[in-house]
Nucleic acid binder design. Sequence first.
DNA 1: GAACGTCGTTCTCCATATGAGAACAATTGG
DNA 2: CCAATTGTTCTCATATGGAGAACGACGTTC
Lengths: 249, 249
Amino acid sequence: MDVISSVRAADTCLRILQQIAFAEQPQGVTQIAGKVGIAKGAVHKHLRTLIDHGMIVQDPTTSLYRLGPKIWLMGQKAPDGQMLSEIALPLMQAVRDDLGLAVVLSVPTPKSAFVLATLRSNQPIDIGVRPGSELQLHSSAQGKVFLAFGPADLWNQLQTPLEAVTPRTTTDVETLRRDIDRIRQAGYAVAPEESLLGINALAAPIFSATGAMVGSIGLIGSIQHLSADATPHQLKVLLDLTEAISHRI
Amino acid sequence: MDVISSVRAADTCLRILQQIAFAEQPQGVTQIAGKVGIAKGAVHKHLRTLIDHGMIVQDPTTSLYRLGPKIWLMGQKAPDGQMLSEIALPLMQAVRDDLGLAVVLSVPTPKSAFVLATLRSNQPIDIGVRPGSELQLHSSAQGKVFLAFGPADLWNQLQTPLEAVTPRTTTDVETLRRDIDRIRQAGYAVAPEESLLGINALAAPIFSATGAMVGSIGLIGSIQHLSADATPHQLKVLLDLTEAISHRI
DNA sequence: GAACGTCGTTCTCCATATGAGAACAATTGG
DNA sequence: CCAATTGTTCTCATATGGAGAACGACGTTC
């Protein structure tokens, strides 16, 4: 029962680490145990391990846990993020100001689209995506971009049956495949209300100099501002943006 | 035999992650297995787990492993590093240019002094410390600063018997205790040839606004440039630096 | 101030996940 | 073409991780 396995305890450890990393505030043992779904005692052992490595620290007064210095240094050494978001963010900003839509930068993981940086829309009712979120491959515009332009084995990572996140999510594999083919031809993806009713997304890929897909930009907006058929202006701005970023990498 | 335990597999996982993070180049399975000291097969399982979480990525062409985007984002969210090194680095730079010695910023972990950032000396033969290194508490100037000014339980974390890194390392606990007392009074530590023969270090603590010790600055140089009795000028520059940093946190 | 609720921490114990080691597959270089 | 590297997968005995309960330390409430 070991076949093609990963390490359970390590998985738990990383889930705990993520929980702490992407929480708004320092977390307590009970809180973490609840979210990760394992016993308090076990979580405590993991936290001790993480502390021993300097990955997290425990506030001496509140006894809550937060990220430690080693994580920061490791982050400095991660190659892609730095470049992508230093190059991409200024350009994204211009697009957000032009269109008034939320702009999202994400990169592919083996099973999702990982949100690296976001700019919230500047509308009164603003829409945003939390950095650190992972968007499903089949129910988001950025995910579908990755399926269309990413490595072939991404397709195999798809969890079937496809989860119906909303009534408008594509759950039929064959339909999805045709959608992906269309996206590959068009060079961009739309996902009207596939992740959340009332919300639409438009996304296009970013390529490195070697031609490999390294990420994507997504525009997010309510169906009022971003219809299922994107306006030519929105499309042009998006594709100009992704091309500009691709060009500078 | 569980008592006061941590999680072995998680420990292994984090050691592997560090190995990848602080290596100069992308690492292969065999290389990692060698350095971490566990079987290749086991390492492979851990790497798969880390990939599943987006912590690392495997280069498709070379099949080597390097840090992934999630680490970068987590690094952005780590609170202390950002502040410390944004505030400290410019001030450190001035000191390096003034004295020509290597300047090291480190923070305490439960069992070591963790090197966050360094400026190498600008001499022809330059001396430096790798960021990500962990200096022992008893055999380095910065470690002794932490013992003197840090939380009391750091002292209990000391591995006895004390390892004799060099012939001049203090290995007697009582001698070390007296040394620490002296450091606490003087406000700075020296560690002539205690880590490496021919090399001396001078260090002083950084305090937060609440009076807690949050890190230290170390000056590193050959015994020619930095003698066991530091010059008044060197001492003044160091203490001015740590005070300036403490003041701005 | 006593009884309560909640927190972080520690303990015991058993099903089981883990890591050693060997074998396999896939490259690479001589 | 063989030899010597890699990265990957497999099997299996045994160490180990997680459930659950109990503990000690706070803070709150009546």
